[in-house]
Simulated assay, not measured.
Amino acid sequence: MKFSCQTKLVLLHMLMICIATGCAAQSTNDQRRLDERVKAFLEANRHEWEDLNVPYEDGQVLHDLIIRNNSTSALEIGTSTGHSTIWMAWALSKTGGKLVTIEIDENRQKVAIANLEEVGLADYVDFRLGDAHRLVKELRGPFDFVFADADKDWYVQYFKDIDPKLVAGGIFTAHNVLQSIRGIREYMAFVDKHPGYVTTVDKSSSSGIAISLKK
Rank of each mutant, 00 (worst) to 15 (best):
R32Q: 15
S71C: 10
Q179C: 11
N115I: 01
F127T: 02
A132L: 09
D105I: 01
T7M: 12
D131K: 05
A168P: 13
F41H: 13
N69Y: 01
S80M: 07
A210K: 03
A112L: 01
M14C: 12
M16C: 12
A168H: 14
R182C: 02
Y124M: 11
D35P: 03
E57F: 03
R68E: 14
L213Q: 12
G141F: 09
N70S: 11
R182Y: 09
D58G: 00
H63D: 07
T85F: 06
I184Q: 08
D153H: 11
N53H: 03
D153M: 05
V125L: 04
I171Y: 00
F172M: 10
L52I: 08
M88E: 14
G170A: 03
R128H: 06
I211C: 04
S73H: 14
T79N: 07
T81V: 15
N53R: 10
F145M: 06
L166P: 11
R182W: 04
R108N: 10
L139C: 11
E138K: 13
I66H: 08
K8I: 04
I184F: 00
S212T: 04
L178V: 01
T95L: 08
E117N: 09
T101W: 07
Q26N: 10
K193V: 13
G22I: 02
N29M: 14
L9Q: 15
S212F: 01
V201S: 02
T21W: 05
K193Y: 06
L12S: 14
F147S: 02
M14R: 15
G141V: 04
A132G: 08
Q109I: 03
K137Q: 15
R33Q: 15
T101Q: 02
A132H: 06
T173Y: 00
R134H: 15
L116R: 02
K152V: 01
F145L: 06
D202G: 00
R128N: 02
Q60D: 07
L92P: 03
A25D: 03
K39V: 07
A150D: 04
G22V: 00
Q31A: 10
F41T: 09
F127I: 07
G130T: 07
T72A: 10
D202E: 01
D131P: 12
L166C: 06
L213E: 09
R46F: 01
